[in-house]
Design a protein around this nucleic acid. Structure first.
Lengths: 135, 135
DNA sequence: TTTCACTTTAGAATAATTATAAACTAGGAT
DNA sequence: ATCCTAGTTTATAATTATTCTAAAGTGAAA
């Protein structure tokens, strides 16, 4: 994914491509594999990677803007850490609480045979499966 | 569940049955249906219910002691609220983000046909399914 | 009943996140 | 090109949930 695509990606979702957003977007989306991170870890990585410092609040803002635009998905796991995932397709996760690590599971690798109906006037938005790991 | 059973329940799990623990345990376990709560909601309910005030830190301590003893299970959902559940059997949840409400799903009501192997030297501890609801 | 490890308590501390308000800036209008 | 303004960034304060601390209190064994 080239810089021009980053600009398109931002503009097409109504996000003005500011210096900070472009920098963060390049860091997140110009990679082959999916990437899991917390705001804290992203902040540290960006601080290392670049000379210009981006405010923590901006990273929060930007990550949430990307999430709202559908460029990131949010995953919450035991231990009060919110992870974001550059894989926005429908998928599931292994969670290793020893290492606080998330691993993607392709949606096709989990098949649910039986599922209950949604209660009263509600509908099912999505189904998330967490497979918690131990050693 | 009578008071004597509460005392047994506490003693049998190595918890000294103090006034506060008995009061909280009675409130949590002397009911028919399973009960979902956060520490905050429990604190409010206990304040209403009883005259003697229990310190918030004690409620945190006690709830975690009950969890460690296996009398409560912990469920974490989007939005950074930790719910506890008096249903400690293996089961799943609906989560309604509109009302921030959790609803139990019996383990038998979800059947998973295909599941991936755990990575490298890891084993599967448990599988949690969240069905997120919308209107 | 005395003793002491376990508990409770109020308040301080921490961590993650959100709110605030002033300064800055992208990009359309002039 | 310069101006203007809504959108954005920033540092800091505020908030929320939770844990820590250290002193005072209390079951229950001896």
């Amino acid at each position: 994914m080239k810089k021009i695509d980053i600009l398109k990606k931002l503009r097409s979702s109504g996000l003005r491509p500011t210096k900070q957003r472009v920098e963060i977007a390049k860091f997140l989306f110009e990679r082959e594999k999916t990437f899991h991170f917390t705001v804290e870890s992203l902040n540290k990585l960006l601080t290392k990677k670049t000379t210009s410092k981006i405010a923590l609040a901006t990273i929060y803002n930007t990550v949430h803007a990307f999430k709202t635009a559908g460029h990131l998905s949010e995953v919450e796991v035991r231990g009060n850490k919110t992870y974001f995932d550059t894989n926005v397709s429908n998928h599931h996760h292994f969670y290793d609480s020893e290492t606080a690590e998330l691993i993607d599971i392709d949606a096709n690798d989990i098949v649910i045979q039986k599922i209950p109906k949604a209660p009263n006037g509600k509908k099912i938005k999505n189904v998330e499966v967490f497979i918690n790991l131990k050693n």
